[in-house]
Amino acid sequence: MTDAGDAIATHVPEAAAPQKPVKLRADAVRNRALLLASARDAFDAAHDDTAVSLEAIARSAGVGIGTLYRNFPTRESLVEALYRSELDAVVASADDLLTGRTAFEALRLWMDRYTRFVATKQGMTTALRAAWSSGALRMSETRERISATVGRMLAAGAVDGTIRPDVDASDATDMLVGVFVATGDAKDADRVGRLLDLLMDGLRPQHRP
């Protein structure tokens, strides 16, 4: 007679094998990077993302429209991927800029890099609003990551003596964002530069007599 435990065991389904992450081929990785670079240039130059042609993005990247849609099935998915890629890049650039420079110099250069991020974001406004509304992207996450990056650079400046040590990262981020609110999101590059220079002047160490 078959043991009851054996009978039950024969009906227990095997655990599903863990799914391995799909590794993209080198050409697929290259095509995705080319598409994101092309999209960034297109949105940088645009004032309204609805005017950006996906066909033109694919053509500029040197791939077919089918390749674009395989990577990004919708305009919204392309915008979300580009936004995340640009945010990652602007955050990562801080460490590179701090290498071989004073923190003051690095922070000012990083602000220029952040300006390019804002310019790209401005060209994607319609799709980004939809992504924020749906929860696919969170504005609070962007703010947290930018503030944390500013905080790292301020801390480096307090150590090397080029930035006053009493600056709160959240306050500095508010001032940085305020520059772009006041200038219409980086439309006037010269004015943005002047205001960023003024902001940096406020971060210099206070030399008391």
Results as ranks from 00 to 15, higher is better:
residue 105 E to S: 09
residue 59 R to A: 12
residue 12 V to E: 11
residue 49 D to G: 02
residue 72 F to A: 10
residue 167 V to G: 03
residue 76 E to Q: 05
residue 82 L to M: 07
residue 79 V to L: 10
residue 171 D to V: 12
residue 188 D to E: 07
residue 120 T to G: 13
residue 47 H to P: 06
residue 154 L to N: 04
residue 85 S to Q: 11
residue 69 Y to N: 13
residue 22 V to D: 11
residue 143 R to K: 13
residue 101 R to V: 02
residue 65 I to E: 13
residue 4 A to E: 10
residue 41 D to I: 02
residue 186 A to H: 09
residue 174 D to T: 08
residue 37 A to L: 12
residue 162 T to I: 12
residue 51 A to N: 06
residue 14 E to G: 14
residue 86 E to H: 01
residue 18 P to A: 14
residue 185 D to I: 01
residue 117 F to Q: 10
residue 152 R to N: 11
residue 179 V to Q: 08
residue 25 R to S: 15
residue 167 V to E: 10
residue 17 A to V: 14
residue 35 L to P: 04
residue 152 R to P: 14
residue 132 W to A: 01
residue 54 L to E: 13
residue 3 D to I: 04
residue 12 V to M: 10
residue 188 D to I: 00
residue 142 T to L: 09
residue 79 V to D: 08
residue 32 R to W: 03
residue 175 M to F: 10
residue 147 S to F: 01
residue 137 L to Q: 02
residue 31 N to L: 03
residue 96 D to A: 14
residue 35 L to F: 02
residue 132 W to K: 00
residue 52 V to P: 06
residue 31 N to R: 15
residue 28 A to L: 09
residue 192 V to I: 01
residue 149 T to D: 12
residue 179 V to H: 08
residue 50 T to V: 00
residue 64 G to V: 04
residue 68 L to S: 08
residue 128 L to Q: 01
residue 106 A to E: 04
residue 166 D to P: 08
residue 33 A to P: 14
residue 123 G to P: 05
residue 15 A to G: 08
residue 166 D to W: 13
residue 70 R to K: 14
residue 18 P to M: 15
residue 151 G to E: 14
residue 138 R to D: 02
residue 41 D to H: 05
residue 100 G to W: 10
residue 51 A to F: 01
residue 198 L to K: 13
residue 156 A to L: 13
residue 23 K to W: 06
residue 120 T to E: 11
residue 36 L to A: 12
residue 11 H to E: 11
residue 34 L to Y: 07
residue 135 G to N: 06
